[in-house]
Design a protein around this nucleic acid. Structure first.
Lengths: 348, 348
DNA sequence: AGCGTTACAGCAAGCGCTTTCTATCTACGA
DNA sequence: TCGTAGATAGAAAGCGCTTGCTGTAACGCT
């Protein structure tokens, strides 16, 4: 059998209540008693029964972090930062919390199911990262679910995700539109007029906002967009490779390619090189996010840096109640244009 | 108040026991009754109380995945694969399990603490990924902890980590030594005789095994190693950059640099370029792991591909009891040499 | 000396679920 | 017609912990 609180109590010659109080440290216990209890805990190798404790206390030390793709550093970096603030072991926070990251794979159903699972566990907080799926039924289901979570006392924080109206969820939103605009303006400033755009998956807020920023810039400079210049794909390298070939096929005269994110941009670079085009001499390329590897591309990628780690850390602190939420519960996190070697003036 | 089982039972006009059985589906319930119960569950928006359930059933649906660095795709890819097999929402497995990944940051203490936390939660299984810390007290503590976990019925699987003797933990170990040997042999075959080596952090099995493979190859070809040719660092890009500058300072005549992993190799490439050296004309570079971005480096990285996703998936299935463990509980997973543009014959 | 305080420690009532055991009812074969 | 097996449903006993409330000393004050 496993050791229980009662066993420890017997060994320390105190009541179970006292052992519990020593372990939780939320009630005065005489130093000598405490020591006796701790010794017994040690000798018996006692490990608290989490479920029993959560049940009785009606609280849990679980904190969930939802990510779309754990293999993507975009999420990895944020998740790592969040987790480090949540405390978990080694965190500066007192109470040890189990920060767990859940991989939704970008699927709305899994997102919802994970939330239910966390709700089951009476999670102390939940942090949702990355863009949301824009789809009426799902959005409604999400809103309802989030509301239930907050009603049940779970703190909900959105990191790099648009606010959820009708909820008390705190939102740290990335200014994807502004970043997209700045990026395209940079290219336009270099003289580009024929710009291909590789967008992310449809029905995603991130995709839409970045694309809108791009189009805003185009419009602001009186550039009429050719529908053939936009291709949708996934947020990965391969998708960028294929989309670029497609763009080139549709209009070989493009002088720049703007990608939905850095991974896609790297795929684009590969496709351009394989097509015998030089970067940026023949075609300029730009990404988004400024992931760690982007600076290692040759030429280094022009992109928009998003303070993923900082935002994640802040989201983590807010989730732990260790930092005040922004006024109104909503904050916009801006990106910073990083001009590097992959963008230059158009040829000719 | 939150809705409880009893509320649902009242609404469906059955006993709590019946509701529980409907929800768990492990006991015959008349179709009509089941339907009535499910309707009540739906109408009341009932969500099972996880802790209570775990307590009563003395089991939990939590599965822990420990990683050293969640922001590193090496772990991200494995974690994603493991999680997808664990089931979680959308997994093919029947019982829904909460697969959670815990970021140890490579710290032994956090590793231990996370294991305790998972032990508290009576986790159904735990998967440990990546190399272990080689340090007598810590190793002993780990062994003891793992033994306790398995004794308590938690399945323990090691993925990309050496076996833990004295435990019943299943191990899927990467053949880091063999990969390291092959890689260096490839370089030697190209004619290199002066090879720098950027090793990972000390006291790590992965670091040691890869380095040993490298030295085995050197020895096998009668190449005497200069102690100045090895530098230790972290498993990241920056470390690779700095270590390379250091190597160049110590011996500018090196014709090849072997890195502990791909991130380090990219840092090495950057350092070489910044030093005015061409790859591979002046210096060849090789990495390890074959992470997704490695093929995008220019020139593409010569490296050893580790089947991270496959190994992770297998580890996940074993953890779920859905696949037979390998005979003896130990399997070695081999890497595959990927020769690409970053390696070539030495100059001159 | 008498009494309000303070500082601990224990009792016992749950927390919301699972599961064993028991009760009931139906269906059938003898 | 009766006995019995098979199929469902319910009663109730926990699972191991937390915590409000109830002692009970020891202490300090008037």
């Amino acid at each position: 059998m496993t050791v229980t609180l009662a066993d420890v109590a017997a060994r320390a010659q105190v009541s179970p209540a006292t052992v519990s109080r020593v372990l939780n440290g939320n009630y005065p216990v005489a130093a000598s008693t405490r020591e006796r209890v701790l010794r017994a805990v040690d000798e018996l190798d006692y490990v608290l029964n989490g479920p029993a404790s959560s049940l009785a206390a009606a609280t849990s030390d679980l904190v969930g972090i939802l990510v779309n793709d754990i293999a993507d550093p975009f999420f990895g970096v944020m998740a790592g930062a969040i987790q480090s603030e949540i405390g978990g072991p080694g965190g500066r926070a007192g109470g040890e919390r189990l920060a767990v990251v859940c991989n939704t794979g970008g699927s709305p159903e899994r997102e919802l199911t994970y939330l239910t699972l966390l709700q089951r566990q009476r999670a102390a907080a939940v942090v949702l990262t990355g863009g949301a799926v824009e789809n009426v039924p799902h959005a409604a289901a999400m809103t309802a679910k989030l509301r239930k979570l907050t009603d049940a006392g779970t703190r909900v924080v959105l990191c790099g995700r648009p606010p959820e109206p009708e909820t008390t969820a705190i939102a740290l939103t990335f200014d994807n539109r502004g970043g997209g605009r700045e990026l395209t303006e940079h290219l336009i400033g270099l003289g580009h007029r024929r710009l291909g755009y590789i967008a992310g998956p449809e029905e995603r807020t991130t995709t839409r906002h970045r694309l809108e920023g791009h189009r805003d810039a185009l419009a602001a400079h009186g550039i009429e967009e050719d529908p053939r210049w936009t291709v949708h794909g996934r947020y990965d390298r391969r998708s960028g490779y294929e989309a670029t070939l497609e763009l080139l096929r549709r209009d070989p005269s493009l002088t720049a390619v703007v990608a939905a994110n850095d991974s896609v941009a790297l795929g684009a670079c590969a496709a351009l090189r394989d097509s015998g085009l030089r970067i940026p001499d023949d075609v300029s390329v730009a990404g988004f996010d400024d992931l760690p590897f982007s600076i290692d591309a040759v030429p280094a990628l022009t992109t928009v840096r998003l303070p993923l780690a900082e935002a994640g850390a802040r989201a983590g602190r807010i989730a732990m109640g260790r930092e005040e939420p922004p006024p109104g519960g909503i904050a916009t996190v801006r990106g910073e244009l990083m001009v590097r070697g992959s963008s230059g003036g158009p040829r000719g």
